[in-house]
Simulated scan of single mutants.
Amino acid sequence: MEFLDRRGALEGRRAVLIGGAAGIGKAVALALGEAGVDIAFCDIDDESIASTSAALREMGRRVFDMHADATRSDQLAQFYGETARFFDGIDVLVNVVGGTCMQPFMERAERDCADDVQRNFGYVVESMRHAVPLLQRSGRGGSIVNFTTIEAHRGAGGFAVYAGAKAATTNFSKAMAWELGPHGIRVNLIAPDTTPSAGNAAAIPEPWRSLNADAPAEWWAKAFQMYIPLQTPPAADDLANAVLFLASDLARSITGQVLHVDGGAAAALGMLRWPYDEGATLPVPMGGTLCKLFG
Protein backbone atom coordinates (compact mmCIF):
# COMPACT_ATOMS: atom_id res chain seq x y z
CA MET A 1 0.00 0.00 0.00
CA GLU A 2 2.78 2.44 0.86
CA PHE A 3 4.44 1.56 -2.45
CA LEU A 4 1.29 2.47 -4.41
CA ASP A 5 0.81 5.64 -2.35
CA ARG A 6 4.34 6.74 -3.17
CA ARG A 7 3.96 5.96 -6.86
CA GLY A 8 0.54 7.63 -7.03
CA ALA A 9 1.75 10.77 -5.21
CA LEU A 10 -1.74 12.12 -4.44
CA GLU A 11 -0.98 13.12 -0.84
CA GLY A 12 -1.26 16.90 -0.41
CA ARG A 13 -2.85 17.60 -3.78
CA ARG A 14 -6.03 19.63 -4.29
CA ALA A 15 -9.06 18.57 -6.30
CA VAL A 16 -12.25 20.14 -7.59
CA LEU A 17 -15.30 17.90 -7.96
CA ILE A 18 -18.36 19.04 -9.86
CA GLY A 19 -21.10 16.95 -8.30
CA GLY A 20 -19.27 15.50 -5.31
CA ALA A 21 -21.88 15.04 -2.60
CA ALA A 22 -23.86 11.88 -3.34
CA GLY A 23 -23.71 8.64 -5.28
CA ILE A 24 -20.73 8.29 -7.59
CA GLY A 25 -19.54 11.80 -6.73
CA LYS A 26 -19.44 11.02 -3.03
CA ALA A 27 -17.51 7.80 -3.67
CA VAL A 28 -14.96 9.81 -5.67
CA ALA A 29 -14.72 12.50 -2.99
CA LEU A 30 -14.14 10.00 -0.19
CA ALA A 31 -11.61 8.01 -2.21
CA LEU A 32 -9.60 11.15 -2.98
CA GLY A 33 -9.87 12.22 0.63
CA GLU A 34 -8.53 8.88 1.84
CA ALA A 35 -5.61 9.34 -0.57
CA GLY A 36 -4.71 12.63 1.14
CA VAL A 37 -6.32 15.06 -1.31
CA ASP A 38 -7.95 18.33 -0.17
CA ILE A 39 -11.23 18.96 -1.94
CA ALA A 40 -13.55 21.70 -3.17
CA PHE A 41 -16.87 20.47 -4.47
CA CYS A 42 -20.33 21.68 -5.40
CA ASP A 43 -23.67 19.91 -5.55
CA ILE A 44 -27.41 20.59 -5.25
CA ASP A 45 -28.13 18.08 -2.46
CA ASP A 46 -27.68 20.03 0.79
CA GLU A 47 -28.02 17.04 3.10
CA SER A 48 -25.41 15.06 1.16
CA ILE A 49 -23.13 18.10 0.96
CA ALA A 50 -23.11 18.30 4.75
CA SER A 51 -22.50 14.58 5.31
CA THR A 52 -19.75 14.30 2.69
CA SER A 53 -17.97 17.39 4.00
CA ALA A 54 -18.14 16.04 7.54
CA ALA A 55 -16.64 12.71 6.43
CA LEU A 56 -13.80 14.46 4.60
CA ARG A 57 -13.00 16.69 7.57
CA GLU A 58 -12.90 13.65 9.83
CA MET A 59 -10.10 12.41 7.57
CA GLY A 60 -8.22 15.64 8.23
CA ARG A 61 -8.84 17.09 4.77
CA ARG A 62 -9.30 20.76 3.93
CA VAL A 63 -12.76 21.10 2.38
CA PHE A 64 -14.68 23.82 0.61
CA ASP A 65 -18.27 23.00 -0.32
CA MET A 66 -21.01 25.02 -1.93
CA HIS A 67 -24.59 24.54 -3.03
CA ALA A 68 -24.42 25.21 -6.77
CA ASP A 69 -26.15 23.84 -9.84
CA ALA A 70 -23.36 23.10 -12.32
CA THR A 71 -25.76 23.44 -15.23
CA ARG A 72 -26.31 27.10 -14.31
CA SER A 73 -23.43 29.13 -15.72
CA ASP A 74 -23.70 31.84 -13.07
CA GLN A 75 -23.65 29.37 -10.17
CA LEU A 76 -20.75 27.40 -11.65
CA ALA A 77 -18.75 30.62 -12.11
CA GLN A 78 -19.50 31.64 -8.53
CA PHE A 79 -18.31 28.26 -7.24
CA TYR A 80 -15.04 28.56 -9.12
CA GLY A 81 -14.57 32.11 -7.90
CA GLU A 82 -14.91 30.97 -4.29
CA THR A 83 -12.67 27.96 -4.95
CA ALA A 84 -9.95 30.24 -6.33
CA ARG A 85 -10.01 32.11 -3.03
CA PHE A 86 -9.89 28.88 -1.01
CA PHE A 87 -7.07 27.21 -3.00
CA ASP A 88 -4.21 29.09 -4.65
CA GLY A 89 -4.25 26.40 -7.34
CA ILE A 90 -5.53 22.89 -7.99
CA ASP A 91 -4.11 19.62 -9.27
CA VAL A 92 -7.20 17.60 -10.19
CA LEU A 93 -10.62 18.30 -11.74
CA VAL A 94 -13.37 15.69 -11.88
CA ASN A 95 -16.60 16.51 -13.73
CA VAL A 96 -19.15 13.99 -12.47
CA VAL A 97 -22.49 15.73 -13.10
CA GLY A 98 -24.68 14.19 -15.79
CA GLY A 99 -27.88 12.30 -16.42
CA THR A 100 -31.12 12.14 -18.37
CA CYS A 101 -34.45 10.32 -18.57
CA MET A 102 -35.16 7.53 -21.05
CA GLN A 103 -37.62 8.80 -23.66
CA PRO A 104 -37.93 8.59 -27.47
CA PHE A 105 -36.44 11.67 -29.14
CA MET A 106 -39.66 12.76 -30.88
CA GLU A 107 -41.51 12.67 -27.54
CA ARG A 108 -38.88 14.69 -25.69
CA ALA A 109 -39.56 18.42 -25.40
CA GLU A 110 -37.10 20.91 -26.86
CA ARG A 111 -36.39 22.28 -23.37
CA ASP A 112 -35.55 18.80 -22.12
CA CYS A 113 -33.20 18.25 -25.07
CA ALA A 114 -31.44 21.55 -24.33
CA ASP A 115 -31.10 20.53 -20.69
CA ASP A 116 -29.61 17.17 -21.75
CA VAL A 117 -26.95 18.99 -23.78
CA GLN A 118 -26.08 21.41 -20.96
CA ARG A 119 -26.06 18.73 -18.24
CA ASN A 120 -23.89 16.31 -20.19
CA PHE A 121 -21.67 18.54 -22.32
CA GLY A 122 -22.16 22.28 -21.95
CA TYR A 123 -21.21 22.59 -18.30
CA VAL A 124 -18.09 20.44 -18.91
CA VAL A 125 -16.82 23.05 -21.39
CA GLU A 126 -17.51 25.84 -18.89
CA SER A 127 -15.99 23.91 -15.98
CA MET A 128 -12.76 23.26 -17.84
CA ARG A 129 -12.54 26.90 -18.92
CA HIS A 130 -12.69 27.92 -15.25
CA ALA A 131 -10.43 25.12 -14.01
CA VAL A 132 -7.50 25.28 -16.42
CA PRO A 133 -6.09 28.56 -15.00
CA LEU A 134 -6.26 27.03 -11.51
CA LEU A 135 -4.46 23.92 -12.75
CA GLN A 136 -1.79 26.08 -14.38
CA ARG A 137 -1.19 27.96 -11.12
CA SER A 138 0.31 24.88 -9.51
CA GLY A 139 3.12 24.85 -12.05
CA ARG A 140 3.21 21.05 -12.08
CA GLY A 141 0.48 20.20 -14.56
CA GLY A 142 -2.52 18.24 -13.42
CA SER A 143 -5.27 15.80 -14.30
CA ILE A 144 -8.80 16.30 -15.60
CA VAL A 145 -11.23 13.39 -15.48
CA ASN A 146 -14.55 13.77 -17.27
CA PHE A 147 -17.40 11.28 -17.02
CA THR A 148 -18.85 10.05 -20.27
CA THR A 149 -20.88 6.85 -20.80
CA ILE A 150 -21.09 3.66 -22.81
CA GLU A 151 -24.04 5.31 -24.59
CA ALA A 152 -21.58 7.68 -26.28
CA HIS A 153 -20.19 4.64 -28.12
CA ARG A 154 -23.36 2.95 -29.37
CA GLY A 155 -26.79 3.74 -30.81
CA ALA A 156 -28.68 4.28 -27.57
CA GLY A 157 -32.39 4.32 -28.36
CA GLY A 158 -34.33 6.35 -25.80
CA PHE A 159 -31.19 8.32 -24.89
CA ALA A 160 -30.46 10.03 -28.22
CA VAL A 161 -29.57 13.58 -27.11
CA TYR A 162 -27.89 12.35 -23.93
CA ALA A 163 -25.75 9.95 -25.97
CA GLY A 164 -24.89 12.71 -28.44
CA ALA A 165 -23.93 15.11 -25.67
CA LYS A 166 -21.72 12.52 -23.98
CA ALA A 167 -20.09 11.76 -27.34
CA ALA A 168 -19.38 15.48 -27.63
CA THR A 169 -17.81 15.44 -24.16
CA THR A 170 -15.67 12.50 -25.24
CA ASN A 171 -14.27 14.13 -28.37
CA PHE A 172 -13.96 17.54 -26.70
CA SER A 173 -11.87 15.93 -23.96
CA LYS A 174 -9.61 14.23 -26.49
CA ALA A 175 -9.09 17.55 -28.28
CA MET A 176 -8.30 19.24 -24.98
CA ALA A 177 -5.79 16.51 -24.16
CA TRP A 178 -3.91 17.64 -27.27
CA GLU A 179 -4.19 21.35 -26.44
CA LEU A 180 -3.26 21.04 -22.77
CA GLY A 181 -0.50 18.47 -23.19
CA PRO A 182 2.30 21.07 -23.39
CA HIS A 183 1.12 22.41 -20.01
CA GLY A 184 1.45 18.98 -18.41
CA ILE A 185 -2.33 18.76 -17.97
CA ARG A 186 -3.78 15.36 -18.81
CA VAL A 187 -7.43 14.91 -19.87
CA ASN A 188 -9.07 11.48 -19.69
CA LEU A 189 -12.56 10.04 -19.45
CA ILE A 190 -14.39 7.33 -17.54
CA ALA A 191 -17.25 5.59 -19.32
CA PRO A 192 -19.56 3.64 -16.99
CA ASP A 193 -22.53 1.58 -18.03
CA THR A 194 -24.93 0.09 -15.51
CA THR A 195 -23.96 1.27 -12.03
CA PRO A 196 -26.28 1.10 -8.99
CA SER A 197 -27.06 4.73 -8.16
CA ALA A 198 -30.06 6.98 -7.53
CA GLY A 199 -29.30 8.88 -10.73
CA ASN A 200 -29.40 5.77 -12.90
CA ALA A 201 -32.61 4.64 -11.25
CA ALA A 202 -34.19 8.03 -11.92
CA ALA A 203 -33.31 7.76 -15.63
CA ILE A 204 -35.91 5.00 -16.05
CA PRO A 205 -39.48 6.39 -16.33
CA GLU A 206 -42.70 4.74 -15.30
CA PRO A 207 -44.03 2.10 -15.79
CA TRP A 208 -40.61 0.45 -16.19
CA ARG A 209 -39.37 1.81 -12.87
CA SER A 210 -42.14 0.05 -10.95
CA LEU A 211 -41.63 -3.14 -12.92
CA ASN A 212 -37.91 -2.98 -12.19
CA ALA A 213 -38.60 -2.51 -8.49
CA ASP A 214 -40.90 -5.57 -8.51
CA ALA A 215 -38.27 -7.85 -10.04
CA PRO A 216 -36.51 -9.95 -7.38
CA ALA A 217 -32.80 -9.38 -6.80
CA GLU A 218 -31.96 -12.86 -8.07
CA TRP A 219 -33.57 -12.01 -11.43
CA TRP A 220 -31.36 -8.95 -11.74
CA ALA A 221 -28.33 -11.04 -10.88
CA LYS A 222 -29.18 -13.42 -13.72
CA ALA A 223 -29.74 -10.50 -16.12
CA PHE A 224 -26.32 -9.07 -15.30
CA GLN A 225 -24.76 -12.49 -15.83
CA MET A 226 -26.24 -12.46 -19.34
CA TYR A 227 -25.14 -8.93 -20.18
CA ILE A 228 -21.90 -8.19 -18.31
CA PRO A 229 -18.83 -10.36 -18.98
CA LEU A 230 -17.66 -10.01 -15.37
CA GLN A 231 -21.21 -11.01 -14.30
CA THR A 232 -21.94 -8.02 -12.05
CA PRO A 233 -22.17 -4.24 -12.51
CA PRO A 234 -19.37 -2.08 -11.13
CA ALA A 235 -20.04 -0.31 -7.85
CA ALA A 236 -19.52 3.41 -7.30
CA ASP A 237 -16.26 2.58 -5.54
CA ASP A 238 -14.99 0.92 -8.72
CA LEU A 239 -15.52 4.17 -10.59
CA ALA A 240 -13.81 6.05 -7.76
CA ASN A 241 -10.81 3.71 -8.07
CA ALA A 242 -10.57 4.59 -11.76
CA VAL A 243 -10.55 8.29 -10.87
CA LEU A 244 -7.76 7.69 -8.35
CA PHE A 245 -5.69 5.98 -11.03
CA LEU A 246 -6.21 8.65 -13.69
CA ALA A 247 -5.65 11.48 -11.22
CA SER A 248 -2.43 10.00 -9.88
CA ASP A 249 1.13 9.78 -11.14
CA LEU A 250 0.45 6.12 -11.95
CA ALA A 251 -1.22 7.51 -15.09
CA ARG A 252 1.25 10.31 -15.74
CA SER A 253 1.76 9.29 -19.39
CA ILE A 254 -1.91 8.63 -20.12
CA THR A 255 -4.03 11.33 -21.74
CA GLY A 256 -6.88 11.54 -24.23
CA GLN A 257 -8.13 8.06 -23.30
CA VAL A 258 -11.51 6.59 -22.39
CA LEU A 259 -11.44 4.08 -19.53
CA HIS A 260 -14.51 1.82 -19.72
CA VAL A 261 -15.41 0.81 -16.17
CA ASP A 262 -18.33 -1.43 -17.06
CA GLY A 263 -17.46 -5.04 -16.28
CA GLY A 264 -16.67 -5.60 -19.95
CA ALA A 265 -20.00 -4.47 -21.43
CA ALA A 266 -18.36 -2.20 -24.03
CA ALA A 267 -16.02 -4.97 -25.10
CA ALA A 268 -18.95 -7.39 -25.53
CA LEU A 269 -20.78 -5.07 -27.97
CA GLY A 270 -24.15 -6.68 -27.34
CA MET A 271 -23.04 -10.31 -27.01
CA LEU A 272 -25.27 -11.97 -24.41
CA ARG A 273 -25.11 -15.25 -22.52
CA TRP A 274 -28.64 -16.48 -23.17
CA PRO A 275 -29.96 -18.61 -20.29
CA TYR A 276 -31.34 -21.61 -22.21
CA ASP A 277 -28.79 -21.92 -25.01
CA GLU A 278 -26.07 -23.93 -23.25
CA GLY A 279 -23.62 -21.07 -22.99
CA ALA A 280 -24.08 -19.62 -26.48
CA THR A 281 -22.94 -15.99 -26.62
CA LEU A 282 -24.67 -14.16 -29.47
CA PRO A 283 -26.53 -10.86 -29.86
CA VAL A 284 -29.73 -12.82 -30.63
CA PRO A 285 -31.08 -15.86 -28.75
CA MET A 286 -30.88 -19.35 -30.17
CA GLY A 287 -33.41 -22.13 -30.11
CA GLY A 288 -33.37 -22.92 -26.40
CA THR A 289 -34.21 -19.41 -25.32
CA LEU A 290 -36.68 -18.87 -28.17
CA CYS A 291 -38.61 -21.98 -27.15
CA LYS A 292 -38.82 -20.77 -23.54
CA LEU A 293 -39.88 -17.26 -24.56
CA PHE A 294 -42.40 -18.09 -27.27
CA GLY A 295 -43.05 -21.83 -27.23
Rank of each mutant, 00 (worst) to 15 (best):
V124F: 08
A22T: 10
A9H: 11
W178N: 07
N95F: 10
V243Q: 06
A22Y: 02
F172A: 12
N171C: 01
T281P: 00
A55H: 02
F147W: 05
S48A: 15
V16T: 12
A84C: 01
I190T: 02
F224N: 12
M271P: 00
P229R: 05
G99A: 04
V258Y: 08
G141Q: 06
E206D: 13
F64P: 03
D193S: 15
A202Y: 03
G288Y: 08
H130A: 06
S48L: 01
F224D: 10
D237Q: 14
A265T: 13
A160V: 15
T289R: 11
G287W: 02
F147M: 13
A22V: 04
V125H: 12
V92W: 04
A280Y: 02
L211S: 07
C113F: 04
A35E: 15
K292F: 05
N171L: 14
F245S: 06
G263C: 09
V124P: 00
I18S: 03
L282V: 01
Q75R: 14
D5W: 09
D69G: 05
G25E: 09
A167C: 04
P229M: 05
T100V: 09
R108P: 00
T194G: 02
A54V: 00
I204T: 11
V28M: 15
P196V: 04
I254E: 01
A22N: 11
T52R: 07
T71I: 11
M106E: 13
F64C: 01
R61H: 07
A280L: 12
A198V: 10
G256C: 08
G264L: 10
D116S: 09
A268D: 10
A55Q: 13
D5I: 04
P182T: 06
G142Q: 05
E278V: 01
G288H: 10
D116I: 07
S173T: 10
N241K: 15
W274L: 06
K166I: 11
A21T: 12
G155R: 11
G60H: 09
E278T: 03
T148F: 02
G33I: 09
D193N: 13
A167V: 03
P207H: 08
F79H: 08
L269T: 08
M59C: 05
V187K: 03
H130Q: 15
D43V: 03
F294E: 05
A203T: 06
R108I: 00
V284F: 10
I204W: 02
V261E: 04
I18G: 03
M66F: 04
L32A: 06
W274V: 06
L56V: 04
A131N: 04
L272F: 09
C42S: 12
K26V: 00
L135I: 10
E2I: 12
G8Y: 05
P285R: 11
V243H: 06
V37G: 06
A177R: 07
M176N: 04
Y123V: 03
G181K: 00
D115F: 13
P234Q: 06
D38E: 06
L93K: 08
R108E: 14
L189V: 08
P285L: 05
A175F: 02
P216I: 11
Y123N: 06
A213C: 01
A168V: 05
L239V: 07
M59H: 09
F41W: 07
M286F: 03
Q136P: 00
A165E: 11
F3Q: 13
R186N: 09
F86E: 14
A9Y: 02
G98N: 07
T100I: 00
